[in-house]
Every structure is written in C-alpha cells, then in structure tokens.
Amino acid sequence: MNIQCDAANNHQVGYLQSMVFHRKLINDQSSYGWGHILLHWLIAFAIIGLYPLGLYIETLDYYDPAYRTIPYWHKSIGALIIFALVFRVLWRVLNKPPAPLPQPERMKQLAKLAHLMLYALLILTLVSGYLISTADGRSIEVFSWFNIPALPFAFDNQEDIAGEIHFFAATALISISSLHALAALKHHFIDKDTTLTRMLALHEDPQ
C-alpha cells in the first residue's frame, strides 16, 4: 500500500527529475522499478553473450588456447544466471509488473505467451546446461569463487540428452528473444507507445 502512495507522489514530480532520481526500486502500476529493469537487462545481455559463446565452444579445436577457458566462462556465467533468474522470479512474484499497455486483446495474449515461453525456455536452458556438466557427479566451478554441487542422482546418458535439450532450448530462447526485441521496436516506432522506453528507464508515465 505504501508503495503505491509513494509511486503516486512520484508522478507529480517533474519528468527529468523523476526519471533518474525518483525512480523507485520496485514497480508501480504504470512503470518498472530499477530492480525489474536491471534484472531484465542483466539476463538479456547474459543470454545474448552466452548463445554465440556456446556455439563457438562446439567449434573449438583441442589445441586452441581458449579450449579450456571459454567453456569455463560459459558455465560460470550460466550458473550466475541461475541465481539471477531465481531472484528475478521471486522479485516478479512479490512485485507485480505494471499493467500492460493498451493494445488489441490478441496481441496482449501473444505477448503474455511469449513472456511465459521466455521464462520457461530460460529455465529449461539453464537446468539442461547444469545437467550436462554435473552428469558425472562433478560440481560446477563458478569463476573459482564457489562450486555448485551435482544432484545426488543421474539418468542414463544424461550429458547427451541434456546436451540436445540445451541446444534446442537455447536456440528457441534466442529466437523468441529476437521476436520479443522486434515486438518492442514495433511498439516504439509503429505504435509509438512506451513499451520500450519504460523498460529502458527513459519514461515516467504520468498517471
């Protein structure tokens, strides 16, 4: 309740000021807070980076100087995204995103479906990636900061099956992310609404 009062006050402040200094950590009914925005872009940039890195790993020659470092980075960053995603899901459950901007019902449903699939594919990609490297009971070393242990059980040919799923889920994830980005650009340039700017923290929607 307090949150909403604060947000309402916030909207009475001048645009420029409110944009940077008065944006709240948490979402309100019409705008995203810093928490949501940072988590969104953190994960976005991580998966945009990890996908080509993952494809590159497949092409590495045994004598490539990066043969050991690139998989290590890929796994470490991937493992960190698991934590970011858990945090993001909790954040989202505890802190409702702003109401969707007006658009035809059909587009609203499509957007919702795409968002749901992005979450599902992200979870699938992360879990399958984890299952590849931990299939023999080894833990995953995250930048030599800490280790994520393996599950106490494994299934037959786990690394192969998880590997297939990892590739297809990641490819689907990056594909739907691209559609998601195109849709955001369509909203910005064609519909001229604040879909993109409010996720870039560039817009404070007046109530």
């Binding site: 998989p71 590849i132 931990t134 023999d136 080894r138 786990q158 690394e159 192969d160």
Partner: peptide, 11 residues
Amino acid sequence: NHAERDKHIKG
C-alpha cells in the same frame, strides 16, 4: 569418468 568429455567423444 568425465561427463563433458563423454559428451564430446559421443558427439
């Protein structure tokens, strides 16, 4: 005895 290597060799 190393899942990532096994995946590579079986690939």
